[in-house]
């Protein structure tokens, strides 16, 4: 069976900051990866682009939980985004893209569409 996606290594565990986010560049644009050690799974990936400002900044927001759901607050205008669903808590009509991410040994793998390689996109 043909798969349409692939798991690219985007960084290592050492690049992550506990309770916080980092940004990586992918064939599909900038992605924010959050490392929340007390959760299982502990990694979350959403688009790095703040839909309200258009700036690539979401990885630099403060993480936390609201009513039990893991969220990040945009560092610019402070809207919250659910790390699992990408849903904006302040505006039902706004949702950011989410990605699947997993830990493979020390490597952090992100699921991106097949046939586009990192090098091509960069």
């Amino acid at each position: 069976m043909r798969t349409t996606s692939q798991w690219d290594i985007v960084c290592t565990v050492d690049d992550l900051v506990p309770e916080s986010g980092i940004a990586v560049w992918t064939p599909e644009g900038p992605v924010a990866i959050f490392y929340i050690p007390h959760r299982l799974p502990a990694l979350f990936a959403i688009s790095h682009t703040d839909p309200f400002s258009g700036a690539n900044v979401l990885a630099r927001g403060i993480t936390g939980d609201l009513k039990g759901e893991p969220v990040v607050a945009s560092p610019l205008y402070k809207q919250h985004f659910n790390l699992v669903t990408g849903q904006c808590l302040e505006d039902d009509s706004v949702k950011v893209r989410t990605y699947r991410v997993l830990l493979d040994g020390k490597a952090v793998r992100l699921e991106v569409s097949k046939a586009k390689t990192l090098v091509e996109a960069a």
Binding site: E19, I62, T63, G64, D65, A73, H80
Partner: peptide, 10 residues
């Protein structure tokens, strides 16, 4: 309780 947020953390 919970894990904090952008209000209490700073």
């Amino acid at each position: 309780s919970g894990h904090g947020c952008d209000i209490c953390k700073p």
